[in-house]
């Protein structure tokens, strides 16, 4: 997995990063960079955006056009960037709070438009930076600083949400199965249209500590043990599925992309018309 060429895409002077020992964010960023390197993308032509929280710090480490935006709203900025300069590869890094809590509306509409942006959701099931409050993806009955008696809320299935909202590439991977992670991120970035990759990550500091998994390996085990391939998932009973999640590519469709469609359908028609 080690690939020293990825350093070409890093602002190495900004390292070490701020993430805690055992945090999976670095694993996801490493995978992103291997994919970008493999695709031989020009770093001058990549824009990476983020929202707020631990994942929000990602763009700062990347030697690209980077924008650390507001909480949950990064996709709106990404939409403006992609529309105004379609030749840029736009990657939007979000936390679970960004994507499906405060930014849920932006997320579903970006899916619906099928605009060519890659959304990578660093799902650590918790608000890490603000002190471990429960998020819309905290599993039921787990503890967070705002669910001291156990979280009673059902959680979001981001994959189903993205498919339902109209994204044309939807995958889930996790911080343990690295070959799959590399594979789906590479495919997501190459995909023309809105691609969503949910990456099940870890947060030993805020999630693990409150849920008897304070050691990094325990948290990584927690992810690894719950992840099952789509194929296997299909064969499992409801009971067997309990507490687990499927990983892999759920949807990969070629559908008309938003900006191309705007250029073809709106700009051309407007220039021809005299209204």
């Amino acid at each position: 997995m080690y690939n020293e060429n990825i350093f070409n895409y890093l602002r190495t002077e900004k390292l070490p990063h701020i993430w805690c020992p055992g945090c999976a964010h670095g694993i996801i960023v490493g995978s992103m960079l291997r994919s970008i390197e493999k695709l031989k993308l020009d770093k001058n032509k990549i824009a990476v955006l983020s929202g707020i929280g631990c994942s929000g710090r990602t763009p700062g480490y990347l030697d690209m056009n980077t924008l650390h935006t507001t909480h949950g709203r990064s996709l709106t900025f990404a939409t403006g960037i992609k529309m105004a300069k379609p030749e840029l590869v736009v990657i939007d890094v979000m936390g679970d709070g960004d994507a499906v809590a405060i930014g849920g509306n932006h997320f579903i509409h970006a899916c619906r438009r099928n605009i060519d942006i890659t959304a990578i959701i660093f799902n650590n099931n918790i608000y890490g930076m603000t002190g471990g409050q429960y998020s819309p993806t905290t599993p039921q009955n787990y503890f967070a600083s705002t669910s001291p008696y156990g979280n009673m809320e059902p959680s979001f299935d981001i994959v189903k949400l993205a498919i339902g909202a109209g994204a044309s590439f939807v995958a889930r991977a996790d911080a343990f199965h690295i070959a799959l992670l590399d594979n789906v991120i590479e495919k997501a970035i190459s995909h023309k249209g809105f691609s969503v990759v949910e990456v099940m990550g870890t947060c030993p500091t805020q999630f693990g500590r409150r849920n008897k998994m304070k050691e990094p390996y325990q948290m990584l085990d927690f992810v690894a043990e719950r992840a099952v391939s789509i194929k296997k998932w299909e064969e499992m009973s409801e009971e067997e599925r309990n507490g687990k999640f499927p990983i892999g590519i759920f949807l990969n469709e070629n559908r008309e992309e938003y900006v191309e469609s705007y250029e073809k359908n709106v700009i051309l028609k407007a220039k021809r018309s005299n209204v």
């Binding site: 924008l67 709106t76 900025f77 939409t79 403006g80 529309m83 300069k85």
Partner: peptide, 24 residues
């Protein structure tokens, strides 16, 4: 040759405009 988008809300409207501005 310019572009218009009706966003999902007001916050998105100004967010997209700021993003576009960053491309010059």
């Amino acid at each position: 040759g310019g572009k218009f988008i009706q966003m999902e809300d007001e916050i998105g409207g100004i967010g997209a405009a700021i993003g576009a501005s960053l491309t010059g």
